[in-house]
Amino acid sequence: MGDINTAMTEQYRNNFLKEVEANVEEGQWVKMCMQCGVCSGSCPLGPAWEHPPQEIFMMIRAGRRDEVLKSESMWMCTSCYNCIVRCPRELPITHIMHGLANYAHRLGLAPKMNPTRRFAKMFWNNLTKSGRVNEIELSVGLYFMDGFKTGIARAWAMKDIGIGMLKTGRLNPFGFVTHKGCKDKKGIHKMLKKAREIEDRRKGFAA
């Protein structure tokens, strides 16, 4: 991962905007931001962003690569799409934030302990394993993310919810064993491997 980061820094030296345009989903829109701030004001988690979207856009143009990519900010996106529908220039802001978070994660620069980054990774691995989400495995995995002791404490704090879900038939206690997922798991895995290869090639991530 570190090697890709070095390669990208070399290739796009002093031009972070060009790097974002080339490698970040919908990054070509960044230059269109007119700094009105409607996105920042519309974000439900606005106050939790160290740098709200409007600032992120300006920082990209100012070449503040490390500050942007190492930021917790993009990880605050709840995917509510408020910014997208309100942006007067119709920038796909939600997708750009997702793209930046994904890029930072790929380069190994995203904050290691950010809970959404960790949960998102766990979520994708969960859903791709069988093609469908295994909810019990996902929730137990989330509680025990930081080890056994913390896991027990978290599970205990959440026990009322868990019991409620079990009692109402909305959680499968045997899901670890009985979850089936898709029939064509092999095909899905091959397909995803190919997709990743193509994307890495296009974005210059391939070795």
Binding site: E25, T78, A101, F119, K121, W124, G131, M191, L192
Partner: peptide
């Protein structure tokens, strides 16, 4: 044999093309 859509946080690990492919 439908599969998961990737949902709203699939982007972080999944990226762009794998998500669309799903």
């Amino acid at each position: 044999d439908w599969n998961c859509c990737g949902a709203s946080i699939g982007y972080a690990e999944g990226g762009e093309l794998p998500r669309h492919v799903m």
